[in-house]
Amino acid sequence: MMRIFDPHIHMTSRTTDDYARMAAAGVRAIVEPAFWLGQPRTNPGSFADYFDSLIGWEPYRAAKFGIRHHATIALNPKEAGDRRCLPVLDLLPRYLDKDGVVAVGEIGYDSMIPEEDEAFSAQLAMAVEHGLPALVHTPHRDKARGTQRSLDVVKESGIAPGHVAIDHLNEVTVDLVRDSGCWMGFSIYPDTKMSPPRMVEILKTHGLERMLINSAADWGVSDPLLTKETAEAMLAAGYTEDDVDRVLWRNPVEFYSQSGRLDLSDLDDAGARGAEPTFEGSSILRGGG
């Protein structure tokens, strides 16, 4: 069975049915970037509890399905524009030291206002200080200019381009990022962003190097299995199984391994640590204690 590493998926918003389907489809490892929840938060404490979940409860839940979960932590671009949330930046260093945190992210722009500049630059500096890669979200509105401006800020920060993934790219923005030396992230969505056939066309044009494919599944209309569907579209287009493995496993492993914290050991034993094997799956499948 093919192995899939989804480098960007918001499992907090997904159900155990999704975990079961993902495991059955070959998803063995995921990275969950800190992002917004649709409903804007209004204070730093709300973020602290969310970050705790990303390094506590969610990896535990994933492990019940044999899936290894890592996270990226940041004040996201959608909420960085709210002054009430800027103190979240003071919370971050503590979380960026954690074992399960493999990058700073999602950072970047939403509306390209000065508050977002401040948070973006400060968090790129934190990535450099903690020796972590950075995951950069690109805005959905005014995307091309937002992507160029993001690359400018990345360059100015001094972080190595190879330590940066610029995400949610499409046919219009891929060239800019490829030329910058940053990794190229593509979110495959049912209706918006990218589709599997369009993704295959991009791979044909731009090659497999530094390419990251994710489902970015969250609380909106999205599908955690579109990574697999893209893999199948690649095979149908004549790519080999090794090509698929490169894009959907080895590339994300290479990118996040730069953190020195990606732990994919004993994947088959996931969930067994510190626990009796007899309760594998039970407390969650039964609805909790």
């Binding site: 506590g56 535990y60 510190g274 626990a275």
Partner: peptide, 8 residues
């Protein structure tokens, strides 16, 4: 919590 590692 609902984390058996912590309850234990």
């Amino acid at each position: 919590s609902n984390d058996a590692r912590l309850v234990t």
